[in-house]
Nucleic acid binder design. Structure first.
Length: 646
RNA sequence: GCUGGCGUAGCUCAGUUGGUAGAGCGGCAGUUUUGUAAACUGCGGGUCGGGGGUUCAAUUCCCUCCGCCAGCUCCA
């Protein structure tokens, strides 16, 4: 065949000589296109721009305007990184180097650790290689020959990968004199295509992600098509740092973690406590409105309970150590479920009693390994808004729908408009690692997917990601700067009802096992608090703000009037603070701004005389003078409506 | 838990050929009575994360423990 049919990016079909390269075709169409080209897609698959076409092709040229091309671009930058490392530190051995969500990394093995200063050197070397416009050269290599070659270079990890993944003839990519990598590609044609990147950090990572394997040094970087996009991303990282809940928690005096008390244990200060109470009250009120019963259960229980539930054996490494009391052994609770189950099982249940929905803000303690704690987001003691629903098979559909609706309403209330759902299912029973019968799994998974459909919730199915005791649906939210957080979860449990021998008497007069569902919507109150704090960058909406109004008298001659304003606001149920320090109003404003108080009322001579207040909003600045009653009505409405962003 | 980095005043941070520590802000006292993001002056404040070692002498060098940070692994 001397010619091939190519469907061009504009949809037209044209004949080209066999062996034409996508980049040549791009050039023929427009030099501009060729300059912008990052990668080709041929018959739906990524394809090197410089790799000759051999068959009829549906050709697309992906340029830097196409977000899909970014992955190829970043992967190419990872190769550039590895090539630079080998230039500077030739003894380094290679692991893997993929593109990831916001950049790329490459794993290396080397006797000495990379120092932070090394990143600068490596980056400089990368630019040097970039300037030389080295080609990403693709080569086909027979497996046996390749293995011998990589073994000769001492690249044992590459050999391992080749053994596992390579076909009889595999592709590898060369870049510069030293770097060759077993890699499917594709890559950009040459290094000059890479215009904007930055190395970010060095961290440890286990070979193949398994902690039993040796640990390697991972260098993270990010890359974008333009300097402008790169700078925007770096700015976003800075922005994220500024709204780090740990920093805000300290600056706004909301919570702390005390070294003397231990890691992962949270102290809510008065202001944080105020916010937390509102979160908790809202949730309890919702429980009651939605037909849940509130219960309270202990924090410890005999080990016998944990043996019955199975946690004693299967969850032991996550539990705090056992304590001996008298002649019995007790353990702190890592979960609330067994306690709620005991309440359910405390009396005979009829089908007429179901569904039973038991809810609690239950504080649990889990022994987390030392390196995993993170502010409020990963702690050792936390409070779950935990509820367990016991119901009949007939009821399960509605129960799941109601849980999901509850979750959605919760997120909306707190100003999260973007969220996504994931349904985790089993493997069909092939591995035997899942508990429960195929009928149970089928019924439960059906209930979950029907509920998402009914609510118009787009749910990604995650096969073989379920817990061993049942399928689940997780709702993840997207915060104000686009990050994803996992919060709400609704999980079936086929195991515990059986272990505890739960039953209800059905219409047939016989005992049946009820269905059991775990669900938590905040997930953990602490974590939710942390996420909210970052979402609002510390500027809690009026209904949540620990101080809603700061009253700022200009001189102490207005103190009396200011106090009367404060008293009236308090009477109206608002959280108000009087700044009666003998300081200039500028300073008082600055302090209130930095504490992110939503409203500041400046009261001076004029206001005192006219019974008015001068309103300042933390976001929009001076709002001018208003009659006190007018201000009061405005702020009460904001609080009552739970307006997430004023 | 693992790899690497870090730990100095309430906070943010200076402080190298090893000679017992400083700044700004905050705090306290006084002066200033002030109109939309920092008035002025003065004064306190630190077992330099804990313990051990080397040394005439350790914030500085070594060991160990604790904690924090970035990841990994695990997870609400």
């Amino acid at each position: 065949m001397s010619s091939i049919n190519v469907t061009l990016p504009d949809g037209s079909r044209k004949e080209w000589p066999a062996g034409a390269r996508p980049i040549d075709i791009a050039r023929a169409i427009s030099p501009r296109l060729a300059d912008d080209a990052v990668v080709a897609r041929v018959n739906g698959e990524f394809y090197d721009l410089t790799r000759p076409l051999e068959t009829d092709a549906d050709l697309q040229i992906l340029t830097s305007k196409n977000p899909e091309a970014l992955e190829v671009y970043r992967h190419s930058t990872a190769h550039l990184l590895a090539a630079a490392v080998l230039e500077l530190f030739p003894e380094t051995k290679l692991g893997v180097g993929p593109a990831v969500e916001n950049g790329f990394y490459y794993d290396f093995e080397r006797a000495t650790a990379f120092a932070p200063e090394d990143l600068e050197k490596i980056e400089a070397k990368m630019w040097e290689l970039q300037a030389r416009d080295l080609p990403y050269e693709r080569r086909l290599t027979p497996k046996a020959e390749g293995l011998k070659k990589y073994a000769g270079m001492g690249e044992t990890m590459k050999c391992e990968l080749i053994e596992e993944k390579a076909s009889e003839i595999f592709t590898e990519y060369l870049l510069g004199p030293k770097f060759v990598d077993f890699c499917r590609g594709p890559h950009v044609p040459s290094t000059a295509r890479i215009k904007a990147f930055k190395l970010l950090s060095i961290a440890g990572a286990y070979w193949k992600g398994d902690e039993k394997n040796q640990q390697m040094q991972r260098i993270y970087g990010t890359a974008f098509f333009t300097k402008k996009e790169l700078d925007a991303h770096l700015t976003k990282l800075e922005e994220a740092k500024k709204r780090d809940h740990r920093k805000l928690g300290q600056e706004l005096d909301l919570f702390s973690i005390q070294e003397l008390a231990g890691p992962g244990l949270i102290f809510f200060h008065p202001k944080g406590g105020t916010v937390r109470k509102i979160l908790e009250d809202w949730m309890r009120d919702q429980y009651i409105a939605r037909g849940y019963s509130l219960v309270y259960t202990p924090h410890i229980a005999r080990s016998d309970l944990w043996k019955t539930s199975g946690h004693y054996n299967f969850y032991a490494e996550n539990m705090f150590k056992r304590m001996e009391l008298d002649d019995a052994e007790y353990q702190l609770k890592p979960m609330n479920c067994p306690f709620h189950i005991l309440i359910y099982a405390d009396r005979m249940r009829s089908y007429r009693d179901l569904p039973v929905r038991l809810g609690e803000l239950g504080t649990v303690y889990r022994y987390e390994r030392s390196g995993v704690m993170h502010g409020l987001l990963r702690v050792r003691g936390f409070t779950q808004d935990d509820a367990h629903i016991f119901c009949t098979p007939d009821q399960i559909g509605d129960e799941i729908v109601n849980c999901l609706q509850f979750a959605i309403d919760t997120l909306k209330t707190y100003g999260f408009d973007a969220y996504q759902a994931e349904v985790s299912t089993w493997d069909g029973g092939v591995s035997g690692k899942y508990d429960g019968t195929p009928e149970q799994w089928e019924m439960a998974e059906k209930a979950l997917s029907e509920a998402t459909a009914k609510l118009g919730l787009e749910a990604k199915v995650m096969p073989d990601e379920a817990a061993f005791y049942g399928p689940k649906i997780d709702v993840k939210l997207v915060d104000a700067i686009g990050r994803l957080w996992q919060l709400s979860t609704v999980q079936f449990d086929f195991t515990l009802p059986r272990r505890f021998g739960l039953e209800y008497i059905a219409e047939d007069g016989k005992a049946h096992q009820p269905l059991m569902v775990h669900r938590a919507l905040y997930g953990s109150v602490e974590r939710f608090f942390g996420i909210l704090l970052e979402h609002y960058a510390g500027a809690f909406p009026v209904w949540l703000a620990p101080i809603q109004v700061e009253v700022l008298p200009i001189t102490d001659r207005q103190l009396e009037y200011a106090q009367s304003v404060v008293a009236k606001l308090k009477e109206a149920g608002l959280r108000v603070h009087l700044d009666d320090r003998k300081e200039k109003v500028n300073l008082k404003i600055r302090d209130a701004q930095m504490q992110k108080v939503p409203y500041m009322l400046v009261v001076g001579e004029r206001e005192a005389q006219n019974g008015t207040v001068s309103v300042r909003n933390r976001r929009h600045g001076d709002q001018g003078v208003k009659a006190f009653d007018e201000f009061l009505a405005d702020i009460q409405k904001l609080a009552a409506d739970r307006t997430p962003f004023e």
